[in-house]
Design a protein around this nucleic acid. Sequence first.
DNA 1: AGCGGGATTTTCT
DNA 2: GAAAATCCCGCTT
Length: 189
Amino acid sequence: MRSDFLELEVSAPEAAKRLLGCLLEREIEGRRVLCKIVEVEAYDQTDAASHSYRGKTPRTEIMFGRAGYLYVYFTYGMHYCCNVVTGVEGEGSAVLIRAVEPIEGVDIVESRRHKSGKEATNGPAKICQALGINREMNGHYLKNAPLKLIMKPPVKPQNIVVTPRIGIKKAIEKPWRFYLRDSTYTPDA
DNA sequence: AGCGGGATTTTCT
DNA sequence: GAAAATCCCGCTT
């Protein structure tokens, strides 16, 4: 069987840039929420900050699978964060979704978050709360309902801002954080 | 507007 | 036993 996400079977930083501007479609509370991905970070097996750095474990197993699956992890005792698995099978790489911009179903997002505007979805754990993503969705294939990844044409390089990743202590020098220059949901908006 | 701490559990050392 | 790919609140300026 051929992958539905061949475009993501590349290095984590390449896949990260490729995911900017793509859409997440979530069916929740009987309605549809559509979001554009505007900020991401890449993680791979050669990377001391990555969960996959020390090899496959029960938690990180999904990262070593095929591209286009969802990797959800639980952190700081109260938060979930979601990633799109990238690279080829066996590689242990993924892209953390750090911020999205709601296009449709904004009212659902804001009521689930008790926040409005960019504060509703400008952080990895905020997105999971807004879209109702939890550990039960770990390993979900993003071609299927109720959470689909819809690929879009690549964003032009001049519209992508590249910076070091944030919230990590190791490998802080890698410029593996990417966001859309023209989004109002990103840091310098 | 900016800083500091608390929440709370999984994971690895 | 401690750190962790975070968020939010409350206090100080």
